[in-house]
Design a protein around this nucleic acid. Structure first.
Lengths: 110, 110
DNA sequence: TTTGAATATTGCAATATTACGATTTATAAA
DNA sequence: TTTATAAATCGTAATATTGCAATATTCAAA
């Protein structure tokens, strides 16, 4: 008891929630915002920017990577991170299903 | 140690992550999907549909409510839930900032 | 090869989440 | 008022997350 009963939900429900969960921390939002604002890969200036230790930043990057939201490649002495376009397309499609297609607002009745 | 350092991040970063975090569980995705599919309010058939106990479902509803993603009103003997259009507009705007405006894909360089 | 810089991993403590049975609260109907 | 039904809350146990110091790894350059 205590563990999430993921086996009891659909594959889609699990996939979606994994994406959202990975974005469910302010540090990880800050990382994504920084990647977006830099318009290119970032090479670990993150530790200087975030109010967290190097170990903790690395852990957050790992979580974003394991959700396939970012990807990294070795760039000389450091590592270059950027967004994973495939995952972002999927994310966009999910949001579409959630919000656009289901004309929300008509659901608001209470 | 262990607590999320939310005070160290911007208001926006915290707000966004709270929304994502609330959606970061398959049961809560299932709830949102069900509300969307019913095209109207739902009156707690959720316990029959989800593979979780009544207490657990109620807890997930509470989390969605405290993130202002859903709202509930008393409807006779039961409670009627629907999406909160204000929060969904905000969510849509966030996604816009994240994905549309920042023409992702051009960021993919590694 | 050794040294230095950048990241990752390990180990641990604090806190948060998940789940459920039992109980409580609130309303509808008898 | 009593009874039944729906939903929330409480208490508790299991598990997951967060954060960091210390250590390990990895690669470039000396």
């Amino acid at each position: 008891m205590g563990a999430s009963k993921s086996a009891a939900f659909t594959e889609e429900q699990n996939e979606i929630s994994i994406l959202f969960k990975a974005l469910g921390h302010p540090a990880r939002i800050a990382i994504i915002q920084y990647i977006l604002s830099s318009k290119s890969c970032i090479c670990g200036d993150l530790v200087d920017i975030l109010p967290l230790s190097q170990a903790t930043v690395s852990q957050h990057l790992k979580e974003l990577k394991s959700a396939n939201i970012i990807q990294g490649s070795i760039e000389g002495n450091s590592i270059c991170y950027c967004l994973n376009p495939t995952t972002l397309e999927k994310f966009k499609a999910i949001i579409g299903d959630f919000i656009e297609l289901n004309n929300f607002g008509k659901n608001a009745c209470c």
